[in-house]
Amino acid sequence: MTEGSPVIAANPLEAIHPGTVGRFLPNLEGRLAADGEILVRGPSVMLGYWNNESATGEALVDGWLHTGDVGSLDPDGYLRISDRKKDLIVNSAGENIPPQKIEMRLMAQALIEQAVVFGDRMPYLVALIFPNQEVLEARVGDHADEAATHKAVHKAIATALADLPSHEQVKRFALLPEALSETNGELTPTLKVKRRVVAEHYAALLTQMGSGKG
Rank of each mutant, 00 (worst) to 15 (best):
G48I: 03
V7K: 06
I129G: 11
P12F: 06
Y124E: 04
D76M: 07
A55L: 15
G63S: 00
A34G: 02
M104Y: 04
V61L: 05
S181F: 04
P43G: 01
E146H: 12
S5E: 15
A148M: 14
A203M: 07
L161Q: 04
A93Q: 14
G22C: 10
A162I: 09
N52L: 06
E95F: 00
V21T: 10
E137M: 09
I81N: 09
E95G: 01
R31S: 06
L25R: 09
A33T: 04
L128I: 05
G119H: 06
D163H: 13
V197R: 15
H66P: 10
L125V: 09
E53S: 14
I81E: 00
Q114D: 07
P189F: 06
P123W: 01
E58L: 13
E186P: 06
Q100V: 12
I97A: 06
P99E: 06
E137L: 03
G71L: 09
Q100F: 11
I112C: 04
G4F: 10
E103A: 05
G22H: 07
P177T: 13
N91V: 02
Q100E: 15
F24A: 15
L180N: 06
S211F: 02
P98T: 07
I38C: 01
N91P: 03
Y202I: 06
T2F: 10
L25Y: 01
M104E: 14
D83K: 04
